[in-house]
Structures are given as structure tokens and as C-alpha cells.
Amino acid sequence: MLILEQWINGLALGGVYALIALGFTLIFGVLKLFHMAHGDVFMFTGYIVVSIVVFAFGGLPFFVVLLIAMAVASLLGMAVERVAFRPYRQSDEIIPLISGIGMSLILQNLALLIWGPGQINYSFNVGIGNVSFGGIQITGIRLVILAASIVIVLIFNYWLYRTRTGRAVRATAADPQTASMMGIRPELIILLTFGVGSALAGAATALVGALYGAIYPALGFSMGLKAFAASILGGLGNMTGAVVGGLLLGVLEVFTASYINVAYQDAIAMGIMILVLLIRPNGLLGKAVEDKL
């Protein structure tokens, strides 16, 4: 019966990874930009939301917390885009990479200065206890996370594939020049992309907060790494890929930890990622782009 618990643990964790990876891969898809500070947007949002929700207002309903987190992350993401990425639109792709690392350092150290070092512990009022049946016990919040990630992914997909703005985003991703000739304003779309992509990370912030109730400055970096790995696994710029990659990574980590050793969790996850890339150089669901050597 333990194995069912393991699956749910892994999928819930994977759901969080998937949300962060989805935003990351969306941004990559539109700008071909590796957003190194994406994880830190996630982390910084956590601090802001905890300050607002827990310390200023007390127990807001979780749904409201989720919306606040998404809004905060969205604004933060757009601000980051303005400062760290916009100036380098024409540059070699490695330049925004470094600028992103700088931004990541800035956010981490700002968090450290504002909220102090060390871990802040809090709890969101989710109001769900544990679920137990047939001798196993599952943290209710994990089920909520799993459900919430699925719903958010579905809404996001609807937006991207069924609405005019979503189509504009995809058009810009496919061919920015042609898109702009069709009357789409690329800069606006880019801003929007960062807004939506970061909002997804914000949703992850709220869910992670509900489950773990802890935040610390280095959380962004480790979560960011997981999101990079998930989107690479699935195929960069591929939305379904990010979700599949995230879930896979979550399950993989949990099963490595339980059947091999927690100590090797990261090493095995990364090793498998390299292997997958060797077999499928564009990720599991990535389309082979024209072979440019």
C-alpha cells in the first residue's frame, strides 16, 4: 500500500515542478530565452505573499491566496523582464543567461535583506485534513495540489490554444517577424508571456506554501533547477512536454529516494535526464528542429 502513497507524493511534487516548468518553457518558446531567475521569481513571490496573507490579513481563504500569489508573481515577472532581459533582445543568447543569473542573485539577496536570513514558517488556511482509506494515509493537501495543478494546466491550455491572445503568443513564438506584420505587437506579447508564465510560478508558490509552509531564499534556485530539468526532459518550448517532464521528475525523485537512496535522488534524476537527451536530443516530446549541427 505504501506504493500508492509514493505515487501520490511523487505526482504532487511533480505537479509543482510542472507548473514552474510550464511558465519557464512558455517564456523559452516565445523568446528562446533561458530565464535563469524564474525560480527566484517563485521564491520572492512566496515571501511577498506570506507577508501579505499571513502577517497582514490572517486567514484568507486559500483560493484568494492563490489569486494573490498569481498576481504578485505576474507583476514581478514582468518587472524582471524589463530590467534583466529587454535590454538584450538583440544580443547573443548567452548574454541574457548571465543577466538572468545576476537577477537571480539580486532577488535572493533582496529577500535576505528584507525578510532576514533563515527559514520562515507559516501556514495557509487550506482547511483540509488527511485522507485515509484502506490503511493508508495521504496528506489531503497533496491531493489538492494535484487537482489544482491539473485545473490550472487545463485553463492555461485553453488560453493558449483557444483564445485570440493565446494565438498571438503562439504566432510570435513561431515567427516574430511575420507575427508583427500581422499587427501583433511583439513587445506586448513578450510582456504578456512573462506575466502569464510567472503567474503559473505564482500558483506553484501558493501550492508549495500550502503543503510545506516554509520559505527560504535558496528555495528558488533549487526549484528553478528542477523546472529547467523538467522542461528539458519534456522538450523545450513544448507545453505538454513541460507537464509530462515535471510529473516524471517528481515521480522519479520519489521512487529513487524510496527504493535506492535519498542521497542519490538528484544524481539519478540528472543522470536520467542526460540519458533521455542522448536518446532523444530534443526531449521526450520535442520536435526535431532542423539539424543545425
Binding site: Q6, Y216, V254, A263, Q265
Partner: peptide, 15 residues
């Protein structure tokens, strides 16, 4: 042991 990589989820080890 668990790695000192600032993870937030320990559910697997705990299971």
C-alpha cells in the same frame, strides 16, 4: 542521509 541541496520535500525519505 539526504543531500544538503536545500530541498523542501522529504516525503519520499519519510515514507
Amino acid at each position: 542521509s539526504y543531500p544538503p541541496s536545500q530541498s523542501i520535500d522529504y516525503s519520499s525519505a519519510l515514507t
